[in-house]
Write a protein that binds this DNA or RNA. Structure first.
Length: 260
DNA sequence: ATGTCAACAGTATGTTGA
């Protein structure tokens, strides 16, 4: 089962690039972030005609997440538990009925948190604490799950071309990395690092200042696997070349292949 | 050289968020 995460930065703006990548990459499941659309405005038929089931959790203008799946989806839930007052659409879960095993997929768009410190950063850390609680609950049930999306976290210095320029940024400051480590230390496996070591692997290049041409990137899109899912890990890759195409998102897809 | 993009409100371009 091929499961991808992709921050598309607007479904309307990516209405050609996203289907083109889907046709070529053929993921069974695609977890999308920043659809920047309300549910009613999402162009469903484009994807349904390609054989995808579709579940959205949208919001006007900003944020918004979605799940595309060629396999049946069950038990869809929207929103990250733990704060009834949180109105930002950043989290969706569903169970994908695989041929050999069901897999719970959790699609997330973690808050950016800048400027840090400040209220936006407090929201980010609070959101990460809620995500920790959610992971802990899923682990307690021994659910096979993949928690994937735009984490807005640079895990280590080697995950940035210019780590010094991110030192006090909400994506890299110590409290952010600590919260991410804490999540991993529950017993989750960061899929990319389970298979590939070393610097120079990025999933985001800013639109500004020629970041792509200079390869000034950061790795902030991650797939975290439960122990059961980690046992099924076959491959994990970053589709880097997507960034160099027409009308690209500033992020590229990252995917895992699970023997599920 | 701080060199971009997307959505929105509301009609031209400024604001917001990344």
């Amino acid at each position: 089962m091929k499961i991808a995460t992709f921050n598309i930065n607007g479904i309307k703006a990516r209405i050609d690039a996203l289907p083109a990548w889907l046709k070529e990459a053929q993921p069974d499941v695609a977890l999308l972030q920043e659809i920047k659309s309300v549910d009613e405005a999402f162009p469903r038929t484009v994807f349904e005609d390609m054989g995808y089931n579709l579940e959205t959790h949208g919001q006007k203008s900003f944020n918004g997440v979605a799940i595309l799946s060629k396999l049946p989806l069950e038990d869809v839930t929207r929103g990250l538990p733990g704060d009834e007052t949180d109105e930002q659409a950043r989290y969706i879960e569903a169970t994908v009925m695989g041929d050999t095993a069901p897999v719970r997929v959790c699609g997330l768009y973690l808050p950016n948190g800048n400027p840090a410190p400040g209220p936006k950063y407090d929201y980010k850390l609070d959101w990460m604490a809620r995500l920790y609680d959610r992971a802990k609950a899923l682990l307690a049930d021994e659910t096979t799950f993949v928690m994937a999306g735009d984490y807005n976290i640079i895990p280590q210095a080697e995950d940035a071309a210019k780590p010094e320029s991110w030192r006090e940024d909400a994506l890299f400051r110590l409290e952010s990395r600590t919260a991410f480590r804490r999540l991993l230390n529950l017993g989750l496996t960061e899929a990319f690092r389970a298979r590939t070591q070393g610097p120079g692997h990025y999933s985001f290049w800013d639109y500004q200042a020629g970041a792509w041409n200079r390869n000034n990137g950061i790795r902030i899109d991650h797939l975290l696997l439960s122990p059961q899912a980690a046992d099924m890990l076959v491959d994990c890759q970053i589709d880097k070349e997507v960034r160099g195409r027409d009308k690209p998102s500033d992020h590229v897809p990252v995917w895992v292949d699970l023997a599920a």
